[in-house]
Write a protein that binds this DNA or RNA. Sequence first.
RNA 1: GGGCCAUUAGCUCAGGUGGUUAGAGCGCACGCCUGAUAAGCGUGAGGUCCGAGGUUCAAGUCCUCGAUGGCCCA
Length: 1084
Amino acid sequence: MSERRYQVLPPDRAADAVETELLARWREEQLVARSLAGRPGAPEFVFYDGPPTANGRPGIHHVFARTVKDLFSRHRAMLGYHVPRKAGWDTHGLPVEIEVEKALGISGKQDIERIGVEEFNKRCRESVWKYREEWERLVERVGHWLDYEQPYVTYSNNYVESEWWALRTLHDKGLLVQGHKILPYCPRCGTTLSSHEVAQGYEDVEDPSVYLALDLVEPPQRVDGNPVTVNGLPATTALGGKPARRRIVVWTTTPWTLPSNAALAVHPDLTYVEVKKNGRDDWTLLLSESRAGAVLGQEWESRWEVVGRFTGRELEGTRYRRPLDWLPFEDGEHEVIIAEDFVTADDGSGVVHMSPAFGADDYAAGQRRGLAFLQPVNARGEFPAEMPVVGGKFVKDADPFIIEELKARDVLWKAATLTHSYPHCWRCRTPLLYYARGSWFIKTTAFRDRMIARNKAVRWNPPEVGEGRFGSWLENNIDWAISRDRYWGTPLPVWVNDADPTEIDVIGSYAELAEKSGRPLPADFDPHKPYIDAYTWPAKSGTGTMRRVREVIDAWFDSGSMPFAQWHYPFENRELVAAQYPADYIAEGLDQTRGWFYSLLAIATGLGDALPNNADPVKPGDAAAPYKAVVVNDLVRDAKGLKMSKSRGNAVDPWSVMERHGADAVRLFLVASSQVWTPRNFDESVIREGAGRFLLTFKNVYKFWAELANFGWAPSADDPRPDDRPALDRWVLSRLAGVEAEANRQLLNYDATLAARAVMTFVDEDVSKWYVRLGRDRFYDVTSPDNRAAFATLHEVLTVSCRLLAPFAPFVTDWIHRELTGTSVHLADYVRPSPFPVDAALDAAMSDVRALATLGRAQRETVGIGVRQPLGELVVFPLLRDLRFDDSLTGLLAGELNIKSVRVATDFAQIGTAEAKADFKVLGKRAGKDMKLVAAAIESWPAASVLEVYFGASVHVTVEDRTYAVGPEDVKVTLRGVATDGRWAVALDTIITPALRTEGMAREIVSRVQRLRKETGLAVSDRIRLLVAGPAEVHAAVEEYRSWITGEVLARDLVLSDGISENVGAVPVELDGATAFIALTREG
RNA sequence: GGGCCAUUAGCUCAGGUGGUUAGAGCGCACGCCUGAUAAGCGUGAGGUCCGAGGUUCAAGUCCUCGAUGGCCCA
């Protein structure tokens, strides 16, 4: 027999301390590295880690995301996969620049230029790491096992070079193109503003509010040349026999954009009316019906007559004449009405002027429809000098001149002013212009369908995010503007001839850069601005110099390139990437839908077969690239369901939470409380009472087992084989196998919540509240086969439970698993190769026993006899036709309820009575005036009839000559004298015979002695001398059960005394009417 | 302003395709048990299923509108 001692984990030991100790142990054993290395010959299961930016403190929501990422990886590693998990850092982009601006006390591009890009970017490079250490510590503390030995860093030279390769590849495929993007722009500062800057600068200002009336071109024609018809009739209006002048009313608050008008937009589903003024037959106006009152006056219907009615869709294609013809159209569609969903009837005329160079909606519509693009405004916000009327003027100053010109041209309907909120430059208060800026795009619309096809092959969890939010985002895809006119980012590797902007070199590697520039790169080569901009070379065409464009790229391109850039592909590691692409799964927050989830997909789809295992087409059911499965997690909100934010002051510090509850409890709470893709409220009391309490129970079960096993049990060949163990053991092993399979199945299915709940319910309900509860006394000795069976069984249950819980609570499970087996849980198998099999019949029988035990306890409650008093018989009666009592578990039921036997009644009348009452509502409809008599008849039924009906039969009730068939739905049955759950009815034989009373008394004495032992502070194994005094009844009980009592309380000696004891320390005990005194002393 | 998600007991959550009296755990009250004890068991109270309309023989479930909270995008 082994002398091994099992350490006990004190329940009051702080989780934080235990976990911290384990972390040190893991470090010492290099356990993370061993798990990462995988087992020899293990198949790959690839996880991609979305890189965080380390220039902010990690928050509790990061703990959530880390838990989700970790648990699936851990599960797969335990299943025997090699799970590569390379950590990464997102290091470029505006957030970093803003952080540095704040640190330097500067703001805006002019300040940056003044300090110098070299210095600024140096600061950015350093700033990225401000919180790195805290990040790494937290990731370690929460137990996210990740490869931090060689993390990928998006600013590193290798990473940038891989991105250059990707951009060059996209360019070669014609997918990296120049275009325009509408951006808020400050003409005074000469800079575009980011959205959060725009949000800071809204001010109420007075702007022109101009209604134009633009001539429709007669006869109205569609673009295809066919006449416009309404309900089959020509829509041409002829009033009073002569052709009418027809005009459409258009509203704008930016008259300066009218010279670049290219189209008018209406809403397809809005109703537009054509109206003529009373008495005027020579002209009409067209506008949205719901805006007519606002444009024509409240009581317009008394002054205007509706002569036509159209939906916006019907107007589509109609041509009109633009208000100002200063600029020639070069190419593109123009002067046409289009129907667009973004048009509203909230203001204006329901007809919107479209100027693709000066509005985001306008631009997008222009792209979709191929509209002409006129941009007669320079970077200072001025019209070109050669423009008529407004040449050289700042656009906002030009408004009055334009209004005058409109009036002169007879296209002005009315001009007023409007006070509204408009964005201004937060620095100089200049009104911002929405302005089309030259920009570089990845032409994602060219491969949108392929992205959609790939997305359909991705296994989304939950599916609706992939189909809905992400799917519709892809359906409405627009080209990805990847250039940023900023400083700290991957430089766009595009060189343009300064003499001929059509001559372009896109550089795909550093070697190519060296070759083009004609000199080797220095040892300390830095591809960032400003250094990179010094690389120039003579244009191939002979005239001009190739100079790099000024822009850097969107940091989302960085993170989306990680599948290949993290390995410096294709310059190195080709085989590695071939083995580790695509990812089997990724897991990030819902906010990444349009972020990382998209950038990964867009880049991978654009690159196509330039990446391994990545060729199109991808069909549903294929392994999708770049990720086969996604698990989305939602936000963590505060305890009241409000968003956590610095300004609210309700953000939770993960470290203090970790200290109070431990990572296990926090992880378990985050995963088990609800599906990870729903938002959860972070409430520490819920952690304590839910996950915390569960872990306490788990530790308690182990503690119970370990303390008793330390009396000399250790696994050995002497333990009975599972098949030879008692039913209780076989039952819990069967349940264990079921839960093992279920947890594994759910995790493979990416449902962490159901997996965790299945295991937790098993441990709590089946193991703690039933198996241990019923089998406690089997652990009080270690030698008999029954003892050995119990120890071996619970050892197995605890060991496997540790494994099943390890992905969720990696700390305490490892601690206990090491005690149980001597090895780390994290190197163990998640599922056993050949577990004791599920025994469905046994599961069902036990389930019945548990139900009957509950009913039996309820009956004891009802009859007022405590469990300590033994009773003779429990009678059970099945209330369902196919229900049979399986008597193989009778012993367990009898023991639990402290009864001598269990009997199955053959007739319900043996145990109780049944009454039926008519349901007046149901029966009344049929019985009518006989109802009272029928009801009386039903109430007088014998129990047998009631039971017949209860079981579904019909009983005939005859009143005079009328007969009614009364079925189960017509009556309400009440069972009396029994406890019932609808399946079973049970009754207790409540007669306490003298023998039972004596036995009850003996049990009472044992109970009191045990309590006294404990109060006295004796160890569980201490032996005692016992003295009992009391009336004859007590003496009789002690004499009869002497050996049982001494065995239970470990008494070497039991002395009976007459009368009331005078022994020091004697304690009075009330025993069902008799008073006894007991005293005990420890036996040396 | 637009799109999406959520709202069920004090709290955290279940409630395929509409179908009997809407469930569980925790908490609470009362009782039991007493060497797993900072545990265990039972009983009970607790519900306007966010609101208002609608569809239906029948709505927590489907539809419409609205409220609140959240996310994304303008």
